[in-house]
Amino acid sequence: MKISKSIYLFFIPGLVLYSIFFVFPTLSALFYSFTDWDGISADFNFIGFENYQRAAAGDSIFMKSVGNNLEFMFFVAVFQTLVALVFAIFLVKNTKFNYFLRALFFFPTILSSVSVAFIWAFVYDPNLGILNQLLSLLGLEFLTQNWLGNGDIAIYSLAFTQVWFHAGQMLIIFVAGLHAIPNDLYEAAKIEGASRWQIFKKITWPLLAPSATIVIAYTTIQSFQAFDLVFALTGGGPNYSTEIIATYIYSIAFRGYDFGYASAISVIFMGIIALITYIQFKVLRSNRVSY
């Protein structure tokens, strides 16, 4: 079928909006990353790559925030994908009970990040929080923790909250992916005497690869963008132990009034996300199969 060239005209409104709200701010950030702009004054100076040099060589908090973010991302990507996958496998059949459970698991996704932060601040409170109280009631006092106040575990507490927050969303993607796998393949495998594990390994997982690619890429990006949750729950503390790149950018820009440097870190941040997402796509693409 020949498609008329005039169809491209329909791209214009979207393109204009995209340019205004995405392309222009991105290019602005790139521009300001070469300046010493404080975010308020009309004047600024071009300082070349100074901001980038500072980030690369002389900013221990930036390095720490990158490390924290990677740790957070790794935990979230692995556990969120696993939790969503396991739940999706159990809830794949379209029964009324499964519909209910899917809706229940999806529910946290529709909450705002700040609401989630309030809920979990209450859950994690070491003195009045329900988590420690529940553990004590169950005789598991030795497991009670200062969940957000202990710098060694605070990042994992945040990551767990992030998994709780978004696993339902990924569950739906996996359920859709599972429904797209032809039933004939399972029937054939069963006739051939394949075990459950073999069926999962040879049929389910390879054919779920496109969904998994989306889930993992999306989870990764989300975990880099978890600013509001981290900001509301710990503000990056204690002692920078939960400082992630997004909260650090905020801190530099809006507390330190150093927009030039914050822009440079934002550009680096964008590069990190792009690189990780590219690697993931490459790796997961190589696992794809079709029958």
Partner: peptide, 8 residues
């Protein structure tokens, strides 16, 4: 108090 860093 105990867990001072986790108390809001």
């Amino acid at each position: 108090q105990e867990n001072a860093l986790g108390t809001n």
